[in-house]
Amino acid sequence: MAILQVRNVSKRFGGLQALNDVNLSVEEGTVHAIIGPNGAGKSTLLNCFVGRLIPDTGTVMFDGKSLLGIKPHEINQIGVSRVFQTPEIFGDLSLLENVMIPTFAHRDGAFKVNWWNRADRESDIQDHAEEILQEIGLYEKRHEIADAMSRGDKRRLEMAMCLSQDPKLLLLDEPTAGMSRADTNATIDLLKRLGETRGLTKVIIEHDMHVVFSLASYISVLAQGTVIAGNTPELIKGDPKVKEAYLGTEAE
């Protein structure tokens, strides 16, 4: 069953047609990679999923509900979490607090004035956050300040924050951008492990083909704002249209 349905989505910024009649559907439990050259509209598309942008035309349905016109926090509350291209974390807070916040948001909803209890006495939240940090391998550093972490750790922390909410759909925007080969491989292993233990549906935007072919079960290729191909990794590899989009046509 398709958990995310994108139908005829178009978005124009002034004279630039960023997205042109995009159609795709993400099946539950799969890892769906969206690839394409620079400026193909990958990030614009992702922004349409989380309420940062509203497409000019078309629909985006998640789990039977439209995602258009509702606020980012509402989209998160119905089960969509996002990992950003540059890690968006709470830099001044400890790793544990970083994970506790989304856990609170998951338990208490979008707004609750819980001002009398002590945050460090909310044992269910605390335990859950520690469990997630353990799973992601940051438990030992839980009392350190997030800003002091390496870039790879920051990104793992952001993933931990998203996982703590037990999302139905995880959106990853270039999860290995700017990482060393070793960090990239560690991230791939982590995402694979999460796929096995949780069976989480993921949408990954990625440049690095090594990452894409290690993880994806389905690949959509975006070029100039349109989906030019969508298939399993094996078949995408041999698709002439994809080669053309990446390498360009021969001069005529």
Binding site: F84, E97, F104, D108, V113
Partner: peptide, 21 residues
């Protein structure tokens, strides 16, 4: 309190907090 934690999160990264539900 958890409320205070949320307020501190707003100071650090309000954008992230919005995308955190």
């Amino acid at each position: 309190s958890p409320f205070g934690l949320m307020l501190r999160a707003i100071k650090t990264n309000q954008n992230r907090l919005n995308y955190t539900g």
